[in-house]
């Protein structure tokens, strides 16, 4: 996937020079391992910092919100699905974005690798299937498949679903993946077990809101937790307020979440935030056959009505 770097630079440079876009949004190499940084280029020179490797896990659609100019954007499968969602939700028009599509073989899970490696990671390199991590005392190889972000390992939309140009040939999509394995495990629990599971899950939360802020869906001008008149949620570490934040955030993503994994990737406390949204994704899939962000031609299930919608829950 690292071979994409030159092609991204080339495309970005061309688009800016031809005046097709005012800015290109992509990634540049981060200053610490396992971490690339969202970067923008407004001139040909600035495109030389663009990079592509398995550390581009942040969802760049988040950086489109409320921008006014014509934007070129580097988009892997999930980013493209969030661009679709932005278009469907009238946050941006299709004409405003030029999508540089990147068929994606998955992003590595920085939390997982950090746990698996003893010692301070000073560098990560990769080839097609191997991730090599260097520490002060030596290096360790991993098969990329075993250190992928969980959502990437179970991803069935690695190719961009919408694009203006492609950086590489489309990949064969994974078909033998199970997106909802952990949801089924939780569904099988008793009510008390479920409660305990989620209490344990969010126990380390420090309310930094990184999960919310990294999410392209969370673009409300003012989030309910930030309202002060009236104030819906307390600001302390009271468990009820922490729960309220997580529950409401998740429900606000119902039928919209593309499972890009940005929330989980950015959590400084390593909380598996997707456990909340995945259940809602599964319900939308089971009840409406819906996966978010695949088409601009259809309204999402939660903002439309059909006479044959399932209604068992209103009894």
């Amino acid at each position: 996937m690292t071979a994409y770097t030159d092609k991204i630079k080339e495309a970005a440079k061309r688009l800016l020079e031809e005046g097709k876009v005012d800015v290109v949004i992509g990634f540049r190499k981060g200053s610490v391992p396992l971490m690339n940084q969202p970067h923008y280029a407004q001139s040909a020179g600035e495109t030389q910092q663009f990079i592509w490797d398995s550390n581009c896990g942040i969802n760049l659609a988040n950086y489109l919100t409320n921008r006014k100019e014509k934007i070129g954007i580097v988009a892997k499968g999930c980013d493209s699905r969030n661009i679709v969602t932005h278009i469907v939700e009238n946050k941006i028009s299709r004409d405003q974005v030029h999508i540089i599509g990147v068929p994606c073989t998955g992003m590595v899970d920085r939390h997982k690798i950090t746990e698996m490696v003893s010692g301070d990671i000073v560098e990560m390199t990769e080839d097609a299937e191997t991730i090599t991590v260097n520490t002060a005392s030596g290096s360790q190889n991993f098969n990329k498949a075993e250190v992928l972000q969980q959502n990437c390992a179970a991803c069935s939309h690695r190719n961009p679903v919408i694009y203006d140009e492609l950086i590489a040939d489309l990949l064969e999509e994974q078909t033998d993946v199970d997106m909802f394995e952990s949801v089924r495990e939780i569904e099988a629990m008793s009510a008390q077990e479920k409660w305990d599971y989620f209490e344990d899950l969010i126990a380390p939360c420090i309310r930094c809101y990184a999960c919310r802020n990294a999410c392209p869906l969370c673009y409300c001008p003012q989030c309910f937790v930030d309202e002060s008149d009236p104030q819906w949620v307390g600001k302390s570490q009271d468990p009820m307020d922490i729960r309220t934040f997580h529950w409401l955030r998740a429900y606000h993503c119902a039928g919209r979440c593309t499972d890009c994994g940005a929330c989980e990737r950015v959590c400084p406390m390593g909380i598996k935030i997707r456990e909340f949204t995945k259940k809602l994704n599964k319900d939308c899939y089971d009840l409406y056959g819906w996966e978010a962000g695949l088409t601009t031609e259809e309204r999402p299930p939660l903002d439309t009505y059909r006479p044959n919608d399932p209604d068992e829950f209103i009894k």
Partner: peptide, 24 residues
């Protein structure tokens, strides 16, 4: 540019001291 305005840097920082006072 890349900042998402989360509170991570301030909350993990040993020297960030700002606070808010609330009545509940």
């Amino acid at each position: 540019f890349s900042c998402i305005n989360c509170g991570t840097c301030t909350y993990v920082c040993p020297t960030c001291w700002c606070f808010d006072i609330q009545d509940e």
